[in-house]
């Protein structure tokens, strides 16, 4: 692959049940590119967690996946409420998700820790009232 490839998705914030569509599509695309299975798994799990977060907390957003020779980069950008305390949000078990989300099997405070765990690099920038941007990289 000499040129980088970019996949871009709008994550619909209104439809919790369709969340995950972008991640499943990315998984398919990466498979077609011949990326190894473990790398695909890491990328798609990290992206799914991010996608779910955008739906639960931010009313949707934009997800972009960049594939280069060395790494796969996932950029998640939303205009949601922002994260007050990133350090606290990164702690396993910390969650501000409502009960309705918990009854669907999410909201356990595992999303951000999982994203970190499955990627080689993760950077969060967030401003309360403006939005959150997360950049993750998985090395190939």
């Amino acid at each position: 692959m000499s040129e980088e490839l970019i996949f871009r998705f709008n994550v619909d914030g209104d439809d919790f049940t369709s969340a995950g569509q972008a991640s499943v599509q990315v998984k398919k695309n990466l498979r077609q590119l011949g990326i190894d299975a473990e790398t695909i798994r890491r990328v798609s799990v990290a992206m799914y967690e991010g996608e779910i977060n955008m739906v639960i907390h931010a009313g949707g957003g934009v997800a972009e996946v960049r594939v280069t020779d060395e790494y796969i980069e996932i950029v998640l950008d939303d205009h949601g409420p922002g994260i007050k305390n990133i350090e606290e949000a990164m702690k396993a078990g910390f969650s501000t998700a409502p009960d309705t989300i918990r009854s669907l099997g999410f909201g356990a405070g595992m999303g951000l820790p999982n994203m970190k765990r499955y990627t080689d690099e993760m950077h969060i920038t967030s401003t309360v009232g403006v939005g959150t941007k997360i950049v993750m990289r998985v090395n190939i």
């Binding site: 969340a19 995950g20 998984k27 798994r41 799914y48 099997g105």
Partner: peptide
């Protein structure tokens, strides 16, 4: 015992 549509997505992603 979780049987909503997100269960299916998680099954797809974890393989």
């Amino acid at each position: 015992i979780m049987s909503n549509v997100n269960t299916v997505a998680v099954a797809t992603l974890t393989g």
